[in-house]
Computed example of a mutant assay.
Amino acid sequence: MRFTILSFAALASSVTAVGNAIVKNNSTSTFYLWSVGSSVGPRQAIAPGGTYTEALHHDATTGGIAIKITKTNDGLYTGAPTQVFSYSLDGAQVWYDLSTVFGEPFNGQRITVASATGGTIDWPQGKNPGGSQVKVASSDGNVVFTAFKAG
C-alpha cells in the first residue's frame, strides 16, 4: 500500500495543469468552427454571446491545432473565408497565432487573441496589420480568441 501511495504522489506531481483554448463570440452574428489537428472535429455553431472551449492539447501527427472559423454553416468545406486561430502545446508553453485563408471573414471587425501570461494579437480591422504575430504563453493559462461587433 505504501508503494502505491508514493507512486500516485509521484505521478500527480509530474502532471502539469493545462489551460484552455477559448473562442468568444462578442459579435452580432453566429459563426462556425472546427478544431483541426490530424482529424477534423465536429462543427460547432457559436451564437452571439456564446463561447467554445477545448483543453489545450498536442496532436502527435500535426504538432498543433488549428481552430478554423467561418461565417457560413459549411464554410470549411466550401472555400469560404476562414479565420485560423492556431496553437501548439510545447510542454510548459503554448505558441499561438492568427491567419486567414480564402479571405478575411472578420473584415471590419476587431479580433484578438490574448493570454494572461503572454502577448496579445490584435487585428483592429479583422485583417492582419502586418508581419508575424506569433506569441507564446504559459500552458497553464487560457488562450482566448475574441470576435467583437463591427464598428
Rank of each mutant, 00 (worst) to 15 (best):
S99T: 12
T70S: 05
E104Q: 14
N20S: 13
T51A: 15
F145Y: 15
T78H: 06
R2Y: 11
S35D: 13
S132R: 12
P129Q: 08
V143I: 11
A45V: 00
G79R: 06
H58A: 13
K68N: 03
V40H: 11
A21C: 07
R110M: 07
G141C: 03
T70P: 04
P42Q: 05
A150K: 15
S139F: 02
N20A: 06
T70Q: 02
T82E: 12
G37K: 14
T61V: 14
H57F: 10
I22T: 06
V101R: 12
T78F: 06
W95S: 10
W123E: 07
G126E: 03
N142L: 08
Y32I: 00
V136E: 06
S138A: 12
I65D: 06
N128C: 09
A55F: 08
V136L: 07
A21Q: 08
A66G: 10
P105I: 06
T62K: 15
G141I: 01
P129S: 10
E104I: 05
V134K: 10
Y52M: 13
T70K: 09
G64Q: 06
V143N: 04
Q83K: 11
P129I: 05
N25T: 01
T28M: 09
T61E: 14
I22R: 14
T28E: 08
D140M: 01
S39M: 10
P124D: 04
S132L: 09
A17R: 04
E104P: 07
Q109I: 05
V143W: 05
A150S: 13
G126H: 05
T120D: 10
E104F: 14
L33S: 08
V144H: 14
T120C: 07
G37Y: 06
I22M: 09
S13T: 02
D59S: 05
G63K: 10
T28D: 15
V134D: 07
G63Q: 12
N107Q: 15
L11K: 01
E54I: 08
A116D: 12
S39K: 15
S99H: 14
V144S: 12
S35M: 10
D59H: 07
S115H: 13
S115Y: 09
T100I: 09
A137R: 07
N128F: 03
G108R: 09
V144P: 11
K68W: 00
F148S: 07
E54T: 12
Q44F: 04
G49N: 13
L6Q: 11
G131T: 00
T16P: 01
S14R: 02
G151L: 14
V134C: 07
T117A: 05
F148E: 13
G91F: 01
G41T: 04
V15E: 03
V94C: 02
A55W: 07
K127Q: 08
T4L: 14
Y77V: 00
Q44W: 01
G118D: 05
A147T: 03
P129C: 10
Q83H: 08
L76M: 05
W95E: 06
D122R: 08
A12L: 09
A17V: 00
I67N: 15
V15H: 03
T72M: 06
S139V: 00
S39G: 11
A21I: 02
V101W: 02
D90S: 04
T100A: 15
L89H: 02
H58F: 14
G19C: 03
T120I: 09
V36I: 14
D74Y: 00
S13Y: 01
W123M: 07
G49F: 11
N142F: 02
F3S: 13
P124I: 00
A137Y: 06
G50A: 12
A10D: 03
Y52H: 15
